[in-house]
Design a protein around this nucleic acid. Structure first.
Length: 703
DNA sequence: GGCATGTGTATTTTT
DNA sequence: TACACATGCC
């Protein structure tokens, strides 16, 4: 029975899937059936009798894990494939630390902060220490987080990280170190973990004498996807998890490594056979995804890479024309061309969902989004600005997080600043009065005997109104009422006799919070209606949760991708076009792929051209984008970019085609020009016409 | 100390 | 364009 689907694998895939015990490295080129191989391997192991909860599947996104487990479930005889441990390193770390966290000195009710929170905490410390003011060019909060994260994930001395990647901050080395030290202390006091801590704590857990062994023994097999995009800490974790039986399978492609900014290193792939003695290496080279002309062009782009690990990707899919390189006059024309091509493919019968537009940076699609909504073409955007980063969503979450973890300083701060007449200074004072950073001993565990001796800041806040400016008095009363209701307590109930607070359903907690927050937020932010939609979406997501803690953590670990754009959230059953950053397109494929802004400065990004390694990574990025295409690949190159900084002027500059399409690669494209297709809308200013004509004529002249 | 207003600036990619 | 920071008024 089980052999049935094994027959459909090619020899290399089958070798990987039916590998016995011991370490296995699968080097899988783009489109070579990597996902299928992993899913089959899971199914194979299940059918061999491995219990699903003894399988750990580490992927790059939660979606990828869910998809693989689903596919494995379809193949396997085993009914409970769903209980395979699947998820990102961070999500799995979170899950394990809730169980074994005590072994590394963690309380089970820790909260997780996202990068925005980390930046805010850095900023708080930065301003406390007076490092912001004066005429010092002390790094900004986001830079601080970047430096910190890079040093931690690369396991590199701060001095060296700064010297290599942030040389302009070298003069501030000492104070940066001081900020980081305070940052760490602060997190510990507040029982809060950032993304990097999740990995560090997992690694520490592996290293701890007893708990380390039980964590490792919990899993019989560990499978890791996208191994080229893991970093040194993640490699340590894997080694720690495989202390006894080295049943580990890693899958990756060095040509697709695009996360070095997160300290990912392809050394992990290259050194795998040394790290795990006796590794069998299997290489997958047959590409099932793209047509030959598309693959040929993609390979030509990679050929110029300074460092290249030979792998001959080939495809059977002979049909189909060459990829198209479309030169446009400017971004506006690029947008129109994309819309027209997308609609033409739709006419041919390719649904919008099977078509994608890819770009380097989140904002590169801004103009296209306007054009798409003008034409009523529904779309869904991945990557770029996230739902979770919006101020009003963070505000809503701050309420929940205080209820969850009353020592969460940042959430208190955020909440207090919402009130009239309370600024940073007053907020700090109130927090001091409440003793926000003092932790009560954990009530969890020994529930039998005594009640909590020390009250949490939340409880103190509910029981007694803090001293606040007159302007805030009314709102503070309402806020206390709100938090009391949500936590199932009563305001001003001074006697401790009635303890156990009543449990309040998450949905009604959010409803209460919203009742308090809505008037505040309408006063605070413009664009209230659009933001209101986000809050409704938040409520919709919360409806799927019973536990407040789970809800808050899942939201930071796996945030939804924002779509509160002009087009409105598409219905689930409706067809929509995919817009995505190239990074977020990793692992995906579409019948039609449109790559926009194929100009130097966009890709490679201006930010990355400083050194050769940076340019190489951008090249891999472009390669990843190209290899997402199955049947049709369109690359767009706008000739002219306007500089909107000088308002009303028509200052512009001319772009160069991306350096990644070299003259020899160019021959593999069908070169077309949209520059002669003049827009139907008459321009209002006659001088524009002259300019356009001059340009068009010049283009003709050149050809 | 809070807050409205003005000015300058830097601007990737994500768990 | 949004955000950080400075300024000046309440």
């Amino acid at each position: 029975m089980a052999a049935n689907w094994l027959d459909q694998l090619n020899p290399a895939q089958r070798e990987a899937v039916t590998h016995g015990d011991g370490p296995l490295l699968v080097v899988a080129g783009a489109g070579t059936g990597k996902t299928k191989t992993l899913a089959c391997r899971v199914a194979y192991l299940l059918d061999k009798g491995v219990s699903p909860d003894r399988l750990l599947l580490l992927t790059f996104t939660r979606r990828a894990a869910a998809e693989m487990v689903r596919r494995a479930g379809q193949l396997s005889q085993h009914s409970a494939a769903g209980s395979v441990w699947g998820g990102t390193f961070h999500a799995v770390a979170n899950r394990l630390l809730r169980i074994y966290g005590q072994a590394v000195g963690l309380r089970a009710d820790f909260t997780v902060m996202d990068q925005g929170d980390a930046a805010d905490l850095m900023n708080l410390i930065r301003s406390e220490r007076g490092l912001g003011t004066r005429d010092r060019r002390f790094p900004k909060k986001h830079t601080l987080v970047n430096i910190y994260s890079r040093a931690v994930n690369a396991q590199e001395k701060l001095a060296r990280t700064i010297e290599r990647y942030f040389p302009w901050c070298a003069a501030e080395l000492e104070d940066i170190g001081g900020v980081f030290e305070a940052y760490t202390t602060r997190k510990r006091e507040q029982n809060v973990l950032d993304y990097d801590d999740l990995l560090l704590m997992w690694r520490a857990l592996c290293a701890s004498p007893q708990a380390g062994a039980s964590v490792a023994d919990r899993f019989e097999h560990v499978l890791v996807d996208e191994y080229q995009d893991t970093n040194a800490v993640q490699a340590d974790i894997l080694r720690g998890m495989r202390r006894k039986h080295a049943n580990i399978m890693a899958v990756g492609d060095d040509a697709q490594s695009i996360y070095s900014f997160r300290a990912a290193t392809i050394r992990n792939i290259l050194d795998f056979p040394e790290q795990f003695a006796g590794t069998r290496v299997v290489t997958l080279e047959q590409n099932y995804r793209s047509t030959r002309p598309i693959l040929a062009a993609s390979n030509a782009v990679m050929e110029q890479a300074a460092e290249r690990y030979t792998k001959e990707l080939w495809s059977d899919r002979a049909s189909g024309g060459p990829p198209v390189l479309l030169t446009c006059m400017d971004e506006q024309q690029q947008c129109e061309a994309v819309c027209e091509r997308v609609l033409a493919h739709l006419e041919e019968g390719i649904p919008l969902m099977r078509q994608a537009v890819l770009f380097r940076a989140g904002h590169h699609s801004d103009m296209l989004e306007v054009e798409l909504s003008r034409r009523n073409i529904p779309f869904h955007k991945y990557g770029g600005l996230k739902f979770i980063e919006a101020a009003h969503i963070k505000d809503m979450l701050a309420f929940l997080r205080i209820l969850e973890n009353p020592t969460d300083e940042l959430s208190w701060f955020r909440l207090l600043l919402l009130l009239d007449g309370i600024g940073p200074k007053t907020a700090q004072r109130i927090m001091r009065d409440l003793g926000v950073r003092q932790q009560p001993p954990t009530p969890a565990g020994e529930n039998g005997g005594r009640t909590i001796a020390l009250k949490s800041a939340l409880r103190r806040f509910i029981e007694k109104a803090p001293r606040v400016p007159a302007a805030a008095r009314e709102q503070i009363a309402q806020l206390r009422e709100t938090l009391a209701t949500c936590s199932g307590r009563k305001v001003d109930s001074a006697d401790d006799a009635d303890d156990a607070p009543t449990a309040v359903p998450l949905a009604s907690q959010i409803e209460r919070i919203r009742a308090f927050y809505e008037p505040v937020f309408e006063r605070l932010y413009d664009n209230a209606t659009m933001r209101l939609r986000d809050i409704e979406q938040l409520e919709a997501i919360a409806a799927g949760y019973r536990s407040r803690g789970r809800f808050v953590t899942d939201l930071t670990l796996d945030p939804p991708t924002s779509t509160s754009d002009l087009a409105g959230p598409p219905q689930l059953d409706e067809d929509y076009l995919i817009l995505s950053t190239i990074h977020s397109a990793k692992g995906c494929e579409w019948d039609v792929v449109n790559i926009i802004h194929a100009a130097d400065g966009m890709i490679p990004s201006d930010m990355a051209v400083g050194d050769e390694a940076g340019v190489d990574e951008e090249r891999r990025l472009f390669y990843v984008a190209m290899t997402r295409a199955k049947d049709h690949l369109h690359v767009y190159f706008p000739l002219r970019y306007y500089h909107t900084k000088h308002r009303m002027g028509d200052a512009h500059s001319y772009a160069q085609l991306t350096r990644f399409i070299s003259p020899s690669a160019l021959r593999l494209f069908d070169q077309q020009s949209a520059a002669t297709e003049i827009d139907d809308d008459p321009p209002t200013d006659p001088s524009n016409v002259q300019q356009v004509d001059r340009w068009v004529n010049r283009l003709w002249g050149e050809e």
